[in-house]
């Protein structure tokens, strides 16, 4: 009756999350002239990044389906 573990990846409300490497992070921060802590946050325990191997301090790239732009990229800093 019950399925084992619940996978939320692929749920229509959950966009794609990818951990990006340091070079990309630097590009991003330089582009917007911001510091890392100024990014929006995501908790390390967030179900959507469960299994991505994200650690505190990493930056996650989120590919959102936007109502106005079609597809938009967004970034979140992994926090504890």
């Amino acid at each position: 009756m019950k399925k084992g573990t619940l996978s939320i990846i692929g749920h229509e409300l959950v966009p794609e999350h990818v951990v990006i490497d340091e070079i990309e992070v630097k590009e991003l921060l330089d582009k917007y002239k911001i510091k890392r802590v100024q990014l929006p946050k995501i908790k390390v325990s967030d179900p959507a990044i469960n299994g991505l191997g994200a650690e505190i301090g990493d930056v996650v790239e989120i590919t959102r389906q936007s109502r106005t732009a079609g597809i938009s990229l967004s970034f979140r800093l992994v926090i504890g």
Binding site: M1, K2, K3, L6, S7, I8, G10, H11, E12, L13, V14, P15, H17, I42, K43, D46, P47, A48, I49, I62, R64, R76
Partner: peptide, 28 residues
Amino acid sequence: VLKVDGVDSRRTTTNNINEISDVLGIEA
């Protein structure tokens, strides 16, 4: 409910935002 067999775990939703945050994450 998402774990019940026969339920579409990709399209099932609730109107409770906090619950969605707990189960599906902050972006959801």
